[in-house]
Each structure stands twice: as C-alpha cells, then as structure tokens.
Nucleic acid binder design. Structure first.
Lengths: 328, 328
DNA sequence: TTGAAAGCGCTAACAG
DNA sequence: CTGTTAGCGCTTTCAA
C-alpha cells in the first residue's frame, strides 16, 4: 500500500540532487549560473522524479499570468460561433500546451472596447490575442497590456499584427480571373467594420483599375446566407457579370449555391472564387478555386508574440497561395 | 501622473472594507461565516476596486490546477487537425473563461496511453477531457485523475461520458430512408478503433435487421478522401445500392462527390445522408440530409464534469435531431 | 463571527 | 558558483 504519489516539488528535486532549492530553480528555470556538474545532477534528478514545475506557483512569484486570452471583437457574442475562431483557439491551445499555459475565449463588444481594461487588470492573464480588431479597439488597448498583446488582423504601433496576405492573395486571384478571360468581375465583401477585409477589397479595386475595368462591389458578412442574397444582387445590378470573387470560402459557397439555384452555370457563365481553402472547398460543386489561409501558423505566431513580449515588429504577413480547382 | 494601476489584491479589499484578509477571503470565496453587514461591506469594496482574485495564488494554496486539458487519442498528431477537435476546444475555452481557467490541447498516442500519468501528476492540471477515447485509454486513467476527468465519447465506471445519441440519430436516419422507399441501404463507417462510431454502426445493423434487410458496410475514416473511395467500393460490391449512410457529414460529402463524378444522381439513384449538421451541409449539392450534433453543449457539459468532480453519473446522451434536406 | 499566523511551490535579490 | 532569506496573493486552521 503506497501513499497516493504526491507530485514532486522543487524541494524534492533539490534534495535528491543534494543542492539548495535556489540552485535547482536556477538550473530548471534556465536562469542564472550553475556549474556543469550541478546542472547535470539537477536535471537528472528532475528527470528521474518526473518533476513538472507548478505553473501556479511560478506565475504567482513571477507575476506572469497563467492563461492566454483570445478576444474576439464583434457586435454580438455570435462572433464566437465562427469556425475560424475555433481554429485560432485550437492552434493557440496547442501552442501553449508545452508552456503549461491555458487559453480562454472571450467576446469583446465593438461598442465597449473599454472592457479590455478588466482583462488588463486580471493578474491571471499572461497575454492577449485580438481577433477581428477595429481601430477603436486598438486605440482602447491599455498601456499595461503593451508587450503582451498581439492582433490577428490589423495592428497598431503598439500592437504587433499577424495576418494572411489578403491583399496579395486577392490580387493574384483577380489577375487569375483576368488571365482566364473574365472582364466583368464582381466582389462580395465582408462587413464594413472589419478592417482586415478592407485589404482584399482594396486589392480587388486596384487590380481592376489597372486593367481599366470598373469595380462591382456588394457587401456580405461572411455568412452563407448573406452571400446567397449578395449573389442575386450582383446579377440584378450587373447582369453581364462573368466572375464573382468571394471574400471567403463560405461566401463563395453561398454565391455558388444561389447561382446554381438560378440556373447559372459555374464556371461556364460565371466563375466563382473563395478565400481560405477550408477542407470542404475541395468537395464543393464544382470544386472551389480559392487561396490558402494558414490560420494555425498565424495563431501560433500571434500567441508567441503575445507571450514573449519584446519590441513591436512590423506586421507579419503570411503568404497566401492560389489553389486552382474547377470553379474559376 | 498616476502610478501604473496595480491590480487590487485581497489585502486592498480587506483594508478598504475595514476587515482582515481572512474575513474578506471568506466572503469572496463564499466559504465560512460572515455577518451580513461585513458581507456587504466586503462585496461593496471588492466591486468598487474592481477586484479579481488571482487564479494563480488561489490554485497554489488550494492545490487545484489552473488549466483544463483536452486530450485527443489517436495514432498520430494529425488527429488534432480535425475541425471537431477545434469546436470542442473552443467551447471548452468559452466555458472556462468565467472561471479564470485556460484550456490546452494535447495528443495522446493510442499506443501509449500510459502517458496520461504525466498529466495526472502535473499540478497545473485541474481537469481532463478525453476525446476519441478507447477502452485501453480508459483503462489507463490513473487513480489520481478520478473525479476530474470526463470523456466525450465512451466512458467507464470511473470516467463519466458525454456524447450525442449516435445510435438514436442513426436509427432515425435509417428509418427515414426506409420510410422513403430505400431498401438497399449501405453505410460508410469510421475506423475500427473508434468505439463511439460503433454505436452508429450497431444502430444501422439493428434497424436493417428489423426490416429484414442485409447490412452493407464499408469502412471509412472520417476523411473526405477515404469516403470517395468507399463510395466507389460500395457501388462495386452492391451495384443496386439505393442509399448510403455516412457516419459524418464529411463522409457524406465525399460520397456525394464521388457519386456525382461517376454520373450517379443524388438522391435520384442513391440517397446520401450525413451526421453532424456542419454549417456547409446546408450548401452542399444537393443540400445534405443529416442529423444535429450539439458539440458545444457536449463540450461544456464535459468540462463542467471534469472540473466539478462529484460522483460518476451514468452516460449523458444528447439528443440528435434529423435535418431533412434534399439528399435523402 | 472575526483576526493572527502559517504556508502552498516557486523565484529573485543578496551575501558568501 | 551556491545557499539563505524573503515574499508573490490567497486560503485555512486555530484561538479569541
């Protein structure tokens, strides 16, 4: 009958290695000096005992928190239901696991960015990832958060940003459409308040302008439902449209669905493109031409930045690759 | 020039309320006695100061951890790439947020369930959610984890389980196919090792048997790719098949894709059904008939069980509702 | 019903 | 290079 194995503490390791707690701490936390011999002895003891530092104790004394908070800005908590948010949280949770840090998920009302202060004052928070950020939110980031916040989307001089190259990806997409003979290209965008979507729209406008073609823009909101209506609106306003660029795959799928329902051939009559390359893009009918979006990489980079602090670097832009399938 | 606002501690609250730290703690932690007057004073002070207890300090003294760990069993780390996993983590992260608890994500090799011990001994771990559990994993759950572990999928006498009613949902689906005239119904299943998928298969077998019809089973693995091949295999082995039940929406979409490519009409020649009701099921071609899967609710319930301890209750089964669309 | 005091496990000065 | 010492913020006996 053995006692229920108590998890070994630093004290146990120190004793086993025949050194003081402080020395053991220096070795294990990788801070400060220690002779090679001591180093080995401590590491060996730790390994033998299966020592894992208690993150709570560590966080308490160091004043670093114990969790990374993912904050999604939006007008209602429904923004949390987006699969994109789940991908970010999943990737962050995976990235944080080895550090013994957990991840939580919060909604931040676009109307009330001051609520960020609560999080800033919570000692449990080691860092923040902002999602769907707006300029107002960026402006509301409290001083005390500096160095431990990162944004997926737009950034600011004090908030490092990480995002896919929306502009480059969209430009490549529009050029691809042009190269394949499309001349009356429309775009279904995101909601006005979402800044990161603006880069795609801007790229679309620019390429069209360079080609001497007029822009045809209809607002969407990333939902399939809204995209269906947007598709109809496009064809009502510009019946000769021969391509529709969706701001996201969900948008493109909604557009395709409506076109099909209205007897329009894709890509015969109208080419359709998306953005994100979600798993189901490949099995849509027809298979969706889209551009990659390395969400997990981006989330990991943002988590890393929010946790490692340091100077704010210029925006990190992750390349997007065109994936040519059948819809365009 | 104000000092950078330091987060208020219990000490601050106590002083503001004119009581001792111990008393303030009793009131705020909701444990032990306190006179109504004191109670009010303390709560008021806490509110005024915007006090948030430091989860690290609390975890340290109470010995409860600071994070909920989501463990996904599988043969390779690729199991973490499943959107389903992200949904679970997202929902758990949302559920844990108010408690100041973070969530992490880990892969557990099916071959080496003993690795659970490491997590059991980590003082930072307050609870565990097991995903894609197998009997071997369940058997390897260390004693010290009891009371703070829950499974999404199959459970055991010491691990409470939470899952959608796979059996009921599948049975309803097969009956629906029967009621609409289908008699030669095949099923594309999940991988053999996944116990929870077994319930669907069992229900399918049973309904078919009751109807005096033979079972037609082909193994899949939840991927669209494998589903495509499975569809072809079904039609090769039983060319007169008039319905295919997919174990998941992804499976069903893969099946539909292949059928379409092979010139088979859906649902004209062959009806196809899925399971999960993912957002894109509604925009598939044709719109996919499927059954709901309340993943977020299930994850929240599992998180709650893993954190609140208590006696192990019988499996909690969440109902699945048939969603009739166009594919069957 | 309340306060004083001890201590959770760890790190970070500060001496040696 | 290493040990001693003093807490981090909180809960929890134990007395009063």
């Amino acid at each position: 009958m053995t006692t229920p194995r108590r998890a070994p503490t630093l004290e146990d390791v120190a004793r086993a290695a025949g050194v003081s707690r402080a020395t053991a701490s220096r070795v294990l936390a990788g801070t400060g000096y220690a002779s090679p011999v001591t180093r080995d002895r401590v590491s060996a003891a730790a390994g033998r005992l299966g020592y894992t530092p208690d993150p709570a104790a560590r966080a308490l004394v160091r004043g670093t928190g114990v969790r990374l908070v993912t904050v999604v800005c939006g007008t209602s908590p429904a923004v949390l239901d987006d699969p994109y948010v789940d991908r970010v949280v999943g990737a962050a949770a995976r990235f944080c696991a080895p550090h013994g840090l957990g991840v939580t998920l919060h909604w931040l009302p676009t109307r009330d960015p001051a609520r960020l202060r609560r999080l800033a004052e919570d000692r449990g928070v080691s860092g923040l990832i902002l999602l769907n950020t707006t300029a107002a939110v960026l402006a509301a980031v409290p001083r005390t958060l500096r160095g431990r916040v990162a944004s997926i989307g737009v950034g600011s001089p004090v908030v490092p940003s990480f995002d896919v190259d929306n502009g480059g990806g969209t430009a490549a997409m529009v050029r691809h459409l042009y190269a394949t003979g499309r001349r009356r290209v429309a775009m279904v965008t995101g909601p006005r308040w979402l800044a990161c979507a603006g880069r795609s729209v801007h790229a679309y406008r620019q390429v069209m302008r360079e080609a001497g073609l007029p822009a045809r823009l209809v607002r969407g909101d990333f939902t399939v439902h809204r995209a269906r209506m947007a598709a109809r609106e496009v064809l009502a306003r510009w019946p000769d449209t021969d391509a529709i660029v969706g701001i996201s795959d969900a948008t493109a799928l909604g557009v395709m669905d409506r076109l099909r329902g209205d007897g329009v051939q894709v890509p015969g009559d109208v080419a359709v493109t998306g953005f994100d390359d979600i798993p189901l893009a490949a099995v849509a009918t027809p298979a969706l031409t889209t551009a990659t979006h390395p969400v997990a990489e981006i989330a990991a980079a943002a988590a890393n930045a929010a946790l490692s602090g340091g100077a704010v670097r210029p925006p990190t832009v992750f390349p997007s690759r065109l994936v040519r399938r059948l819809s365009a």
